[in-house]
């Protein structure tokens, strides 16, 4: 087995071969999805619970479709409306759910580290669908798959991650994944939106968009949250777009065949010009969404295999 982890909590603890294993399987699922070939036996008889403590439409739908395509029984729990409001702690919620014996738990939470905490208390496989500013591993994996398919490789590429890195879990997971696969990562943004100590992550930091994009293979834009545009981090939306929004002129500094990515949802006219986002020759934004389903199918497939192996060994009385 080249994918040994019991949970998918982050990129930090994954080995490059585990990443490759997962992407290879996801690639296969992506092709099968296009051909309409179903795999309903993979998670047959398994229960997947999506627990989103923070609003999400896209990621939750993607996990739900992925689970259903593999034959899992999928249940969505809107945690914002539930017992959390009644004062129940995260650990009690976890223990309650654990008693219902789910097999796969997909969790998004506004606090960094909350998904790690929850994973310590349950007997099933946990997938991190985003925790605070910490990690969003399936997003980084789907970005990696998209890059690999567009560029034919996932190493020795020059990749610029642009915008609000400070508040972005997507950026953290991507920095780690792309670094592990031996790419050159650049961070581009105003200093108020770059986290402290980031230079020590083995990345190059740029505050000028044109310099930062010079000769890169991939331009990865990040979403700028509305609440950060009010003068606290940047002076205004229009100044941000002028200096850091991706338009044709700024993109012209990248390589001619550079691809443009965005984790969505986009703020057109804030971090990205609408015509760039819609340019089918440059933008792979829709492909990212498509790969999201395939990557989540692969992740749940691998975790389910590990879970079955663990349970089988336990039943046979073997220590693993």
């Amino acid at each position: 087995m080249t994918f040994r982890a019991p949970h998918l909590l982050g990129i930090e603890h994954l080995h490059p071969t585990e990443i490759t294993t997962l992407l290879d399987l996801a690639d296969k699922y992506a092709e099968d999805n296009r051909k309409g070939r179903a795999h309903r036996n993979v998670l047959e008889g398994m229960t997947q619970i999506n627990m989103f403590f923070e609003n999400s439409t896209r990621t939750q739908a993607s996990f739900e479709i992925a689970g259903k395509r593999l034959g899992a029984d999928v249940m969505n729990m809107a945690m914002q409306a539930s017992s959390i409001k009644k004062g129940e702690t995260l650990i009690d919620t976890a223990l309650t759910l654990n008693a219902m014996r789910p097999d796969l738990l997909v969790v998004r939470h506004p606090n960094s580290g909350a998904v790690d905490l929850l994973a310590q208390k349950v007997n099933c496989a946990v997938l991190n669908a985003g925790d605070g500013r910490h990690e969003h591993p399936t997003q980084a994996l789907l970005d990696a798959l998209t890059i690999r398919r567009a560029k034919g490789r996932l190493h020795r590429l020059s990749i610029a991650i642009c915008g609000d890195v400070a508040h972005s879990r997507v950026a953290r997971s991507n920095i780690m994944l792309l670094g592990k696969m031996e790419n050159r990562v650049r961070l581009v943004g105003p200093p108020t939106l770059l986290p402290s100590g980031v230079e020590e992550f083995g990345v190059e930091v740029f505050h000028d968009m044109r310099e930062g994009l010079k000769d890169v293979d991939v331009v990865m834009m990040l979403r700028l949250q509305k609440e950060r545009m009010d003068g606290g981090f940047i002076p205004s939306e229009r100044e941000y777009f002028h200096r850091y929004g991706l338009d044709a002129e700024k993109l012209s500094h990248a390589k001619d065949d550079a691809i443009v990515m965005h984790p969505g949802p986009m703020n057109r006219g804030v971090e990205i010009d609408g015509t760039i986002a819609d340019d089918i020759n440059r933008s792979v934004i829709q492909e990212q969404v498509e790969m999201g389903v395939a990557v989540r199918m692969a992740a749940m497939d691998l975790l389910a295999q590990n879970l079955r192996a663990k349970r089988g060994a336990k039943a046979a009385g073997v220590m693993v």
Partner: peptide
């Protein structure tokens, strides 16, 4: 404390 560790863990830092 703000710095590499805070950034790695996605926790907000005290300078």
């Amino acid at each position: 404390t703000s710095g590499k560790f805070a950034t790695l863990r996605g926790l907000s830092g005290v300078s």
